[in-house]
Design a protein around this nucleic acid. Sequence first.
DNA 1: GTGATGATCTTCT
DNA 2: GAAGATCATCACG
Length: 219
Amino acid sequence: MPGRLLPRLFFEAPPEVVGPRLLGKLLVHRSRNGLLAGRIVEVEAYLGPHNNPPDPAAHSHRGPTPRSLVLFGHAGHAYVYTIYGRYFCMNVSCEIEGRAGCVLLRALEPVAGIDQMALNRGVAVDGLAPEKLARQLTSGPSRLCQALGLTRVSHNGLDLADSASRLQVRDDGCAVTEMLITARIGIHEAVDWPLRFAMPEHHCVSGKRSLPGRRVSLA
DNA sequence: GTGATGATCTTCT
DNA sequence: GAAGATCATCACG
């Protein structure tokens, strides 16, 4: 297994703090078809209802429901839900127990198990330049779930900070020195809140290249 | 390259 | 009953 497991404490902070921290870390899935891993290059923060003002775009914003219950539990758990009836999105829960908040994983750079990811995505490897292939595989919240084989039934609620877990977030020492902050993508409320964090110019980052944002160095 | 469209079904009101 | 943290595809320039 690459890198070291991140402790629970890493996740017990507000999403706008955990989001930038997650850039450069590895999402690792020990799947039936082998080890699948990707480096996190783009995330979005969704704030809990305790926040002032509350985040109207967050699934937790009207309090716990059967779907969003995971978000109110311990930090460092996977929140995987179905979107538009046909895709999945994966989040990492944040904040201490009783408080909601999460970080949506929007894009990865494939690191291990690329051939299996291509199979999972139904993408032909032949004739594609490496960067093009990587983008096809894991550039987008539902694409990365498909590539890593993540589903709501199998993965929602898994503890990412448990050494026995099939799904973990790990740190292999990759240092991110700069990030791009922009508004979040695909939402219709709080459309201009600066809660999307990405590695600048990374080829796997999803969405338009031309979103207005600001570059910030991480010291 | 950009922009529009439809697929499809879970979740909450 | 309506909306949705998306994606692939197609038209157009």
